[in-house]
Structures are given as structure tokens and as C-alpha cells.
């Protein structure tokens, strides 16, 4: 345990100094992953989770693991039904979204952003207790 717990400001600032060898390695790693589209928060959360032996979502995306059961299952299904799916798409029986937003909105008319935000909002309402009129 450190003598003083890190304040939120220290954690948020996380000023990594490239002169320090370990911090330089971390910086290079962060820059590499940011280049792949991950943000600082995702990198930190996944790194801490990995250190604890967990298997965070990012690594399942990052590492193409052939032994991954789910990926294997998808592969089998695609191999079996790919030609059928393609014919449906060609005949217009399957709607193919033109962009990611359209995909996200398909279920309930809400974008991924709106879903994330509303989830946080509802969590906050629960924190407040009584924020939602629950009598």
C-alpha cells in the first residue's frame, strides 16, 4: 500500500515522463493502442484487469485467438450459412446497415452514445436514492 492513496486528480493527470524508462515503455504502449483506436481509460482498465488475471473485452478483440470458443463457433456458422446469407442479401431480403450508427440504432432507436449516457444517468438516479420517485 502506498503511504498516501492517490487522489483522483493524480490518477487523472497521470503525467508519464518519457525520461523514466518504465514510464516511457508505458507511453509507447499507450500510443500504440491509441493508434488502434483505444482510449486512455480503456487501456488502463484493461491493463489492470489483465494484471489481476482477468480477461477483459479488449484483449479478446485485440488478440485473434483461434482457440476462442465463440470465434470458432461463429466461424463454423459462417462456413455453413455464408452462401445462403449472401443470396438473401443480394435479393434484398436482409437489410445491410451502411454505417455503425445505423447498426447501433437498429434495436430501439437509440445510438450507442445515447445508450451509454442513459445507463450512466440511471445509475446516478439510483445513487441519489429517491431521485426517481419510488414511493
Amino acid at each position: 500500500m502506498p503511504r498516501n492513496p492517490s487522489s483522483r486528480a493524480v490518477i487523472k493527470a497521470a503525467r508519464l515522463n518519457p525520461i523514466n524508462r518504465e514510464e516511457a515503455k508505458a507511453l509507447a504502449y499507450i500510443q500504440k493502442l491509441e493508434g488502434e483506436g483505444y482510449n486512455f481509460k480503456e487501456i488502463v482498465v484493461d491493463a489492470i484487469n489483465r494484471a489481476q488475471g482477468l480477461t477483459p473485452e479488449m484483449f479478446t478483440r485485440e488478440v485473434a485467438d483461434e482457440s476462442n470458443r465463440f470465434a470458432g463457433l461463429v466461424e463454423q456458422i459462417l462456413a455453413r450459412f455464408a452462401s445462403e446469407l449472401l443470396s438473401h442479401i443480394k435479393t434484398g431480403q436482409v437489410h445491410v446497415s451502411q454505417n455503425v450508427d445505423e447498426d447501433a440504432q437498429r434495436d430501439d432507436g437509440m445510438t450507442a452514445f445515447a445508450k451509454n449516457f442513459s445507463r450512466g444517468l440511471l445509475q446516478r438516479q439510483q445513487m441519489i436514492r429517491g431521485g426517481e420517485d419510488d414511493e
Binding site: R8, N39, K41, A112, F113, A114, N116, F117, G120, L121, Q123, R124, M127
Partner: peptide, 13 residues
Amino acid sequence: SIDPGGEIDLLSI
């Protein structure tokens, strides 16, 4: 504070 993707940092309020 709100992180990318509309994630509210609940501890920052």
C-alpha cells in the same frame, strides 16, 4: 466529467 461515448464519470459529479 463525461468520457468518450457519453459515459458519465459518476464520481466526478
